[in-house]
Simulated assay, not measured.
Amino acid sequence: VSSNPCSSLQNILIVNALKIMRRCAILSCCLFLHLINLTVTKDTPMVDFVWEVRETDLLAKQNGEMMYSPEFRTYNDSVEHSWMLRLSPHGRKPDDTENCSLSLCYNGQAVVETKYQLYLNNKFNRYTHGGLTSDVFPGDESRCWGYDHFISREVVLDKAKGYLFGDKVKIGVRIQSDPIRMSNVEEYSGVLIKSLNRQRVLGKYADLILDSSRGVWQAHKVIVSSQSAVIDEKLSNVTDKYPIRVVISDEYCADVGSVLQFVYTGSVNNSSESVKDLVNCAHNLKIDSLKSFCEDELLNNVTCENLIDRFILSHRYQLPTLKAVLMNYVSHTKCSTIRYDIKEKLKNFPDLLLEITSFLLNN
């Protein structure tokens, strides 16, 4: 053991230096891991999300109470990020009850950096906004960034200032995001379809009435005419005031309710027996999508008992795929009464009778 004090001091300095170097190495590694989680979005386009808040909800909140918008999503480099807006209408802190607090909150776990701008819509085009800013959202309990004093509560609730649209305030955020992915477009389409059908069922904003012996249905002419060439032609020559009434006979279409359900939702709840009525409606109203739907339904559960009836439907309503499947069924299945049934049931369809007879003779 050395008794030289200088030597001991030198050893201590070396040990401390090694400790510092090791700590720096660990810190550098952590810093690197932190940085690779950042989503760099310098050139990403901006998109807007707007949240409508009722005036009554604003008035009901006390100091410190917060409201959250519905969740919305952005996409950066194929990575999905979930966000919400947070509003404290009566101030977030006990010593501030006169101002509205507004923040952008990140719902994910990863670290993300983005540019954004919070704002309030104004009917006089005098928008209140916090300016374009860029923040790093760490994905933990400190995931919200914004303004404790965004705008005076009194100004927002003053109708003369233009921030109230009827009984609602429109709060928005402009944020970086790549174009919405197809899966979310499909998801949005599903939501839109449900919403439009709900409006139809409730009779809201209806400008078209379809009248038949089975009932009266309210609808929207822009939607129905987009699917039916016949309705579109009828409406193009009408100059009457809204709502426009179109009378439909049972012979023309006996199930108007199911037709509207399909036009608005792309599906029907009816049994296979009612497909006969629907395919007649689709043919007469020239709704190609419904006609294809009915043809697909008629392709199911073909039997010797319903074979001739479906042949008639395929011939009457010009369903070539169905007719081809039925012909194939005849050639591979032994229906003992098929020849007798053809002669009896197809007396009024000589062209179809000749077509099936020729097929049977050649197969």
Rank of each mutant, 00 (worst) to 15 (best):
L202R: 10
E187R: 15
S103W: 15
C6L: 12
A25E: 15
V155H: 00
T321F: 08
Y242E: 14
K347W: 05
N197L: 04
D96G: 02
E52R: 14
H81L: 11
L260A: 04
D135A: 14
S78G: 13
L322H: 00
L307A: 10
I287C: 02
V230K: 01
L360Q: 07
Q261C: 12
K170Q: 15
N125C: 12
Q10V: 09
Y116L: 08
I175E: 01
V79E: 09
D351V: 14
T74S: 09
V279A: 06
L85T: 04
D351K: 09
A254M: 07
S7Y: 15
A254V: 05
S236T: 05
V275W: 02
S189P: 00
L299F: 00
M21I: 14
K161Y: 00
N63H: 06
W51N: 08
V222N: 12
N4E: 11
L31H: 04
S228A: 05
L85F: 08
L346N: 09
L235Q: 00
F349W: 13
L164V: 13
S249D: 14
I171A: 10
N4A: 09
G64F: 03
T265Q: 09
L313Y: 05
D309V: 01
H332R: 13
H81V: 06
L235H: 00
T321R: 07
E344M: 11
R245V: 11
L59I: 02
H315W: 10
P179W: 09
V238S: 03
Q109M: 11
A254L: 07
V169H: 04
S274C: 04
I171F: 10
F72A: 13
P89M: 10
V201D: 02
T114E: 02
I209L: 08
C29Q: 10
N284Q: 05
E98V: 13
I209A: 06
M182K: 11
A110M: 07
D296C: 04
N16I: 15
G139I: 07
P243W: 04
S82A: 13
R310N: 03
N76W: 01
L260F: 01
Y75W: 15
F359D: 03
Q318N: 12
Q10K: 13
L102T: 03
D211F: 09
K291P: 02
E305K: 14
L260P: 01
S101K: 06
A219L: 14
Y127G: 03
L58I: 03
S152Q: 11
G139V: 08
L196D: 01
V111D: 04
Y147S: 13
C304P: 00
S272A: 10
S152T: 11
M66Y: 06
K159I: 12
V40S: 13
V111Q: 05
E355N: 13
D77A: 15
Y252G: 08
R310V: 01
S103A: 14
V50M: 07
N270P: 00
S8E: 15
Q62T: 09
Y127L: 13
V15L: 08
E186M: 05
K345A: 08
